[in-house]
Design a protein around this nucleic acid. Structure first.
Lengths: 110, 110
DNA sequence: ATTAATTTCGGTTTTGTCGAATAAATAGTT
DNA sequence: AACTATTTATTCGACAAAACCGAAATTAAT
């Protein structure tokens, strides 16, 4: 991959960020990935991917204000960029077009 | 990933193998990936992924007879296994469900 | 100080990638 | 028939990028 492509986990995290809308930050994203995708993932992995996605300009981020709870330090909030949205739509369309042309017999087992 | 997960390229190659039905072998797969996904890829990459997919039991293979053309040596033909089909369906459903719940506003830009 | 929520750092394994080597078949040449 | 190009294919060995984790650092509230 030449830096412009999008990996499997990158794609789901992009999708999760879009879903989380204005509460998309590390820990919340980790929770959603685990729930929605039925898989475990560490917070370090999430942040690692988030950073790569930002370097590729598929995500942008800003810091929130700290919340008034114990340990409530400021959060790094993410949002999908226009480029990110484009990448998401491209891979969706590409895969759907492949699904459409799979011959019926392909999945028959004898 | 503990060997049971499926990468981005692994997924498209699985899809292409299903599409190619009974002519799914290295070079043909390479051509299809390049056409359908609008990206370049070497034959070594294709074979490498094919092999991993087989180790994961998402693909099975058999040798064809040689074809009667110049250099027409036997081909290694691939077919998606039941497990492979399952993996494909799972990731499709997972992504579609994420798409469905993205709030309308998420992709609005101000 | 201590505790809690969050992100950052350093490193390992798995996936994605390629160039070059090898194998097997046909066509042409001697 | 035996050899040697040429063509279609797959295998090998190596490296880069993506996926992954444990532990350290940071920041706010108690």
């Amino acid at each position: 991959m030449k830096g412009t492509n999008i990996g499997e986990l990158e794609e789901v995290i992009l999708l999760i960020v879009a879903n989380l809308f204005d509460n998309a930050y590390g820990i919340e994203i980790k929770k959603e990935v685990e729930e929605k995708c039925n898989r475990t993932i560490t917070i370090s992995t999430v942040h690692n991917v988030l950073q790569r996605l930002q370097e590729k300009n598929f995500l942008e981020s800003r810091y929130s204000d700290p919340t008034p709870e114990r340990g409530g330090k400021r959060k790094l909030l993410f949002r999908v960029t226009e480029a990110g949205q484009g990448a998401l739509e491209n891979s969706r369309e590409m895969r759907e077009s492949l699904w459409k042309t799979i011959p019926k017999i392909a999945f028959d087992r004898s």
